Amino acid sequence: MTFAWRRLTEADFPMIRGWLEEPLVKRWWNHETTPEAVQNDFGASARGEEPGQDWLALFEGEPFGLVQRSVYADYAEYLEPLSRLTEMPAGAISLDYLVASPEHRGKGLGVLMIQSMLAKTWIDAPAAPCVVIPIAAGNQRSWRALEKAGFRRVAEGDLEPDNPIDPPLHFVYRIDRPRLSF
């Protein structure tokens, strides 16, 4: 099974608003969904005005998921607290992701989406040594998807939660760039 990827555009914002309003997505992403808030949160990336990238995952031509990809060094507000929990090599990449609708969940698409973005990341960012992802400890679906995608848990500790209803405990997952063997 393969996925196509395309960068998020401002024309996608109404769809993103709907995704962010879906109860399970809303629970873990905790974004405001007004048109102004979506524009504020995703606009700079869609216009190429910031280093982070928002990617739509397409399955059979239809968008079903979103992956945000960035280099930690570009976002000190995330790098510094995470560095207290685990080693953060120069060039480490962050991914944040969601599967938008309930009908696409529970079928392994999230795991395959993560693996597909990893393969893309190793090509797009040849200097990146690893991908590091902190996950709220209570978001078992998400950290289990990372484990199935080949990530390993390397740390746990307190980080500011995305949703203020969550405790600060996070699990930190990492996968290193595959080494070529001849």
Rank of each mutant, 00 (worst) to 15 (best):
L20G: 03
T34V: 03
G61L: 03
G61R: 02
N139Y: 10
H170L: 03
Q140L: 05
P23I: 08
W143G: 01
P161M: 04
Y78D: 14
A100W: 01
S70C: 07
D166G: 01
E21V: 02
M113W: 09
L169R: 13
G150I: 04
P178S: 11
N30W: 07
M88L: 15
W29Y: 06
N30A: 13
P129Y: 11
L98E: 01
A92Q: 08
I165W: 00
T2R: 15
E160M: 05
T86P: 12
D41H: 04
A46K: 09
L8H: 04
A4Q: 15
F171V: 06
L98C: 00
G61T: 04
P178Y: 12
F13N: 05
G110A: 11
A37S: 14
D12K: 02
A57W: 00
R7C: 11
G91D: 03
S142N: 05
F3D: 03
P23T: 07
E77G: 08
T86M: 13
M88W: 13
F151G: 10
M15F: 14
D41A: 06
D166K: 00
L58V: 06
D41M: 01
P102Q: 10
V132N: 02
E49K: 13
R47A: 11
E160A: 09
M15A: 15
A137F: 02
N30H: 13
R179M: 09
L180Y: 07
G110F: 04
P35V: 06
T33G: 04
F3Q: 02
R27V: 01
A76P: 15
V131F: 03
K120R: 15
E10Q: 13
L20K: 08
Q53G: 00
A137N: 01
W19E: 03
V154Y: 00
W122G: 07
L66Q: 06
Q140F: 00
F151M: 12
P81F: 12
V99M: 14
L79P: 07
E36V: 08
P129H: 09
A90R: 15
Y72F: 15
D158Y: 05
D176T: 05
D162T: 06
S94G: 13
H170W: 05
H104M: 09
L109P: 01
F182P: 11
Q68W: 12
L109Y: 07
G108K: 12
W55R: 10
P89G: 03
E160I: 09
I93S: 12
Q39Y: 03
V131A: 06
P164T: 04
G52H: 05
Q115W: 02
P161Q: 02
K26A: 15
L56G: 08
S94R: 13
E147K: 10
N30F: 13
M1N: 12
L82N: 06
D54M: 14
I16C: 05
P178W: 10
V25P: 08
T2N: 15
E80F: 04
A44Q: 12
E22T: 15
A44Y: 05
F13Y: 11
V154T: 10
S101G: 05
I93T: 14
L180F: 08
W143E: 03
Q115G: 08
D166Q: 02
G157N: 06
D176F: 01
D162K: 09
L58N: 02
G110Y: 06
L146Q: 08
P89I: 05
D162S: 09
Q115A: 11
E87T: 12
W143P: 04
V154M: 00
P161C: 06
S45N: 14
E49C: 06
E32N: 09
Y78K: 02
L169Q: 11
T86D: 14
K148M: 10
Y173V: 13
A4W: 09
L79N: 07
